[in-house]
Amino acid sequence: MMLTIRAHLWRFLPAFFLIGIMWLLWKALYIKNIPEDQISSKPFPSFSLNDVRHEEKAVTLADLQGQVSIVHVWASWCDVCVREHQEWLNIINQWPYPLVGMVYRDDANTVKTILAEKGDPFTLLLNDRTGQLGVDLGIVGTPETFIVDANGVIRYHHLGAIDQAYFESELLPVLKQLNGNDVG
């Protein structure tokens, strides 16, 4: 009996092959794709601001270009933002995309205190003291989050706080798609 099974094992080959294909198709069902027309394409406004942590250094739009980055607008006076901070620490810990923070009409020292207390997930942290960049971006309220592609074009915009699950389901696919397009 065993012998006959072994002798005819090759006949199961197509079955294994097809099972592999079925698995592939099943996984493919759950891939998220973002259609082009649902992605905004406004260029990120140009700016020249200081980093909260390094006052002497000016950051400009050119620093954003060259990689896909997340731009997160928040403020220390915004309760929701401060509570959201932990989520960003977790997110960046798990998916280390460049995260550019922008504190909106805020006091640099309070911000530094929060960072020292909770942790600092930001690659850059712009200090929009006058709120000019916020106005140029068309901020409705804090917190807001943007995804900016390597050419400095805004490709995604979210109003309100984000948690890890939301990031994974909504922002991550966009980030992957943008990064994938750059590679391809």
Binding site: L25, L29, Y30, I31, N33, I34, P35, E36
Partner: peptide, 24 residues
Amino acid sequence: LVRSGVISSVHMFASDPLRGVFIL
């Protein structure tokens, strides 16, 4: 492939994967 939106998923945002699972 045609009906589940796996291939033309670019045109169907968040299409119901249930259909695909069913056909599969």
